[in-house]
């Protein structure tokens, strides 16, 4: 059974576009990345999954149950981490967490304490008085405290410092080992790259591609950076199969999608001072997909 299934989902807010014809399947136990720039439709998709908003067309299901009809039942097993954290201004951290826990009809005290230790969260502070990052930590604990089978994370790391981000990813990996499915929405590709098995790329409301993170990274593309001894060769440099060319002084970098031997033979004839051949970052591939989408 799939943890999440989205079928032909379309959402318009009046005339403005939310998402168009989105189809996605997230398998149980998977960490699924959902990337795209701001305004691409990531939050719209998530908000439909959680029945905050209703689809214009199409449908979605979680664990085989309809997202709209069975919404309350589904949420028993779902933890949601919003991108913007807004909590009741009269509550302390512990008030909010225990209020949240009550809805799941089980004792979450132990888990709350564990998580607050991991994220160094003071239970007795007023939420209103917390910094942005600390408020995000409250949201993280709130999403995890009932040990949900599906975690829906919308831009989860915003506001967390690198140390806390690391702990957060460690916790996610532990949860995933226990069988938790994770739907990870982000515009920061390095974090998706770090943790996800598969990734869907969304642009202007449409899904461009769904790929294994490995294939996405290793297909054809190599990122190549060359430093020439003299600047004249930089301007002259060109060959089939290169994209995203950036030339600066005696320095050129690009993505290469051809036979690696061809380019090595060509480079051998040139006067080079430094050479770097590496896996392109997801970011670079991603931008490449975007350009193709534009064509």
């Amino acid at each position: 059974m799939n943890a999440i299934e989205i079928r032909n989902l379309t959402k318009f807010y009046g005339k403005s576009r939310g998402v168009i014809d989105v189809n996605l399947e997230v398998k149980e136990g998977e960490i699924f990345g959902f990337i795209g720039p701001n305004g691409a439709g990531k939050s719209t998709t998530i908000r439909t999954l959680l029945a905050f908003i209703y689809p214009t067309k199409g449908s979605a299901s979680i664990f085989g149950m309809d997202c709209i009809k069975d919404s309350a039942k589904i949420k028993m097993d779902v933890g949601y981490l919003p991108s913007e954290v807004n909590y009741y201004d009269d509550m302390k951290v512990k008030d909010l967490l225990f209020y949240s826990a009550k809805f799941y009809k089980k004792d979450c005290t132990k888990r709350i304490n564990e998580l607050c230790d991991i994220f160094e969260l003071d239970l007795n502070r007023k939420i209103e008085a917390l910094s942005y990052g600390n408020r995000k930590k409250v949201a993280v604990v709130q999403a995890l405290l009932h040990e949900p089978k599906l975690l829906i994370l919308d831009e989860p790391t915003g506001g967390l410092d690198p140390l806390m981000q690391n702990r957060f990813f460690e916790v996610l990996e532990q949860e995933n080992k226990k069988g938790t499915t994770i739907f990870f929405s982000s515009h920061i590709l390095s974090e998706v790259q770090r943790i996800c098995d598969r990734v869907a790329i969304i642009k202007e409301g449409r899904i461009l591609k769904v790929e294994q993170i490995n294939t996405l990274r290793t297909t054809r593309y190599k990122k190549i950076v060359i430093e020439f001894k003299n600047a004249g060769e930089v301007n002259a440099f060109d060959m089939p199969g290169i994209t995203k060319v950036e030339k600066k002084n005696n320095h050129v970098e690009f993505l290469y999608a051809g036979d690696i031997n061809t380019i090595l033979r060509k480079l051998a004839q040139m006067n080079i001072s430094n050479l770097l051949i590496e896996e392109p970052s997801l970011e670079e591939i991603f931008i490449h997909y975007y350009d193709k989408g534009d064509e």
Binding site: I74, K75, Y87, Q142
Partner: peptide
């Protein structure tokens, strides 16, 4: 106050 997202994410109709 945008707390409705918190509440609607709980298992309540």
């Amino acid at each position: 106050e945008k707390t409705i997202e918190f509440l609607l994410a709980k298992p309540v109709t």
